[in-house]
Design a protein around this nucleic acid. Structure first.
Length: 445
RNA sequence: GGAGGGGUAGUUCAGCUGGUUAGAACGCCACACUGUCACUGUGGAGGUCGGGGGUUCGAGUCCCCUCCCUUCCGCCA
């Protein structure tokens, strides 16, 4: 591990964030050439490290020559004395800086990354990811994205959940849902997992409460602003639940913890991005799908009518999101009790109305970010449900067999990792919050 | 899979009913500049107008084919 004490020796690197506590001391910093403002007899070298940027003032002719022809993003080591900037109480700089070039960039950058707004096409942004990730805005997005994942883990662990890692190379489909990617597996055909569903259900048989941050792959040519072919999911499953209230409460508190953690630990990044996160209300509004469709109908003054549809339309999701924001100051809303025909065969039907299910989605930022349900836990019921859905039990034998050996009542959810970040930060395209997105036409970088 | 919009300099874009040498801003290069912080000023380099075919005296501009990007729908996390 690195030493984490504040060094006082000039031979030891300090970070830009530590500068204020070294006033009047000579320090050494390392980082990238973020900007260079050159004058006749002096220059401002702006250095960027993992915490921020620092202005260094070059004033001697020999040092000026070193810096004069440097390209941006060259790697530098700079020594100088920490002083307060002229006419400023809270800004610091290095005086009489001496520069050592650790790795000079030899050619012009393909994109400008030291401006606040890069103003690039999404395609250019991603194709140049090795560079654009260094942009302060871009860097902040993925810092917050990482904080969300950290918060998810911490909350799950605090609730006595056990983390596990599902496999992604499988023999076939566990849900029979979307298209799967095929991979050559020593001459046999294997599939990439589209969901950790099977494995999290297996795991509650031992641990009762489990979670995972799992990759899932969908070989479908969706060309939308919210689909990836390779995505990640916050998976959760808990045993001994009798009502959807339990997993929904879990989901609500998960979201709350994630939002609060980001607000607290991501203060600087949020400020930089100009994003103000809405607090999660004590109770996230919850409506049945039927109620949601009525609300959408009214919200749109009759223009959007999904009331005879078995599901919400994207426009409907957007409208119900606006409704929740206006009526409950909530960025999130739960929709429950979807029709059985829209849900996977393992979803528990509603006892009082078998046409409906004990299921729920979470709408965040105006689109679906999470989905879950109570599950059928008895072998015969599950087998019959598969048959009702037109699935041959023989084709899902491995899955069905789990339920012969004492599966408790259980339920859970899966929440899109990228979509969650997209929802709370309010970005239009999921690729903007995905560092290395994979979609129909993109396999690199 | 369906329907729109688009592809012009490194980047983001303008380019009219087809017309002579295709422009701007930022970036890059050179020079000037004593406090900038999106530094400023002057000058310069940089283009197979996505690719292929066609119409025409003449195509960035019109037509056909093709590739790519993007938005929306289907679908879903």
């Amino acid at each position: 591990m690195e030493k984490n004490t504040a060094p006082s020796s000039p031979s030891e690197r300090i970070l830009s964030s530590e500068i204020p506590s070294h006033l009047d001391q000579t320090v050494m910093v390392e980082g990238w050439l973020h900007n260079l403002r050159l004058f006749n007899d002096f220059a401002f070298v702006v250095l960027r490290d993992r915490h921020g940027v620092l202005q260094c003032v070059i004033s001697s002719p020999d040092q000026l020559e070193i810096v004069r022809h440097l390209q941006m993003e060259s790697v530098l080591r700079v020594r100088g004395k920490v002083i307060k900037q002229q006419n400023s109480e809270d800004r610091y700089e290095l005086q009489d800086a001496r520069v050592e070039v650790l790795n000079a960039v030899e050619e012009a950058l393909p994109v400008i990354i030291n401006k606040k707004e890069m103003n690039l096409h999404p395609d250019t942004l991603i194709s140049n990811r090795p560079l654009t990730i260094r942009n302060l805005h871009q860097r902040a997005i993925f810092k917050l994205h990482g904080l969300a994942q950290q918060a998810y883990r911490e909350y799950m662990v605090s609730q006595d959940c056990t983390e596990f890692f599902p496999p992604t190379i499988l023999t076939g489909s566990s849900e029979g849902g979307s298209e799967l990617f095929s991979v050559d597996y020593f001459g046999k055909e294997a599939k990439l997992s589209q969901s950790a569903q099977l494995y999290k259900q297996i795991c509650i048989g031992a641990y009762e409460r489990v979670f995972a941050i799992a990759k899932c792959f969908r070989a479908e040519k969706y060309a939308t602003s919210r689909h990836l072919t390779e995505a990640s999911q916050y998976e959760f499953e808990m045993a001994f639940v009798e009502s959807i209230d339990q997993p929904l409460h879990f989901l609500q508190e998960t979201i709350r913890t994630m939002v609060e953690t980001i607000k607290e630990k991501g203060k600087e990044e949020l400020e930089l991005l100009g994003i103000k996160l809405l607090d999660v209300p004590p109770t996230i509004p919850q409506v049945t799908m039927q109620e949601a469709q009525e609300i959408v109908y009214k919200e749109s003054n009759g223009k959007q009518d999904d009331r005879r549809e078995p599901d919400m339309s994207p426009e409907g999701e957007r409208l119900i999101g606006e409704w929740a924001k206006r009526e409950y100051q909530s960025n999130f809303v739960f929709i429950t009790h979807y029709p059985r025909k829209k849900r996977a065969f393992y979803t528990l039907p509603t006892p009082s109305n078998p046409e409906l299910t004990e299921s729920y989605d979470c709408i965040g930022g105006g689109f679906e970010i999470a989905s879950g349900s109570l599950r059928i836990n008895k072998y015969e019921d599950l087998r019959q449900s598969a048959i009702d859905k037109g699935i041959l039990p023989e084709t899902i034998e491995d899955y069905l067999n789990i339920f012969k050996f004492g599966m408790p009542p259980h339920g859970g959810f899966g929440m899109g990792v990228e979509r969650f970040t997209q929802a709370i930060l309010g970005y239009h395209n999921v690729r903007e919050v995905t560092m290395f997105p994979r979609d129909v036409n993109r396999l690199k970088p």
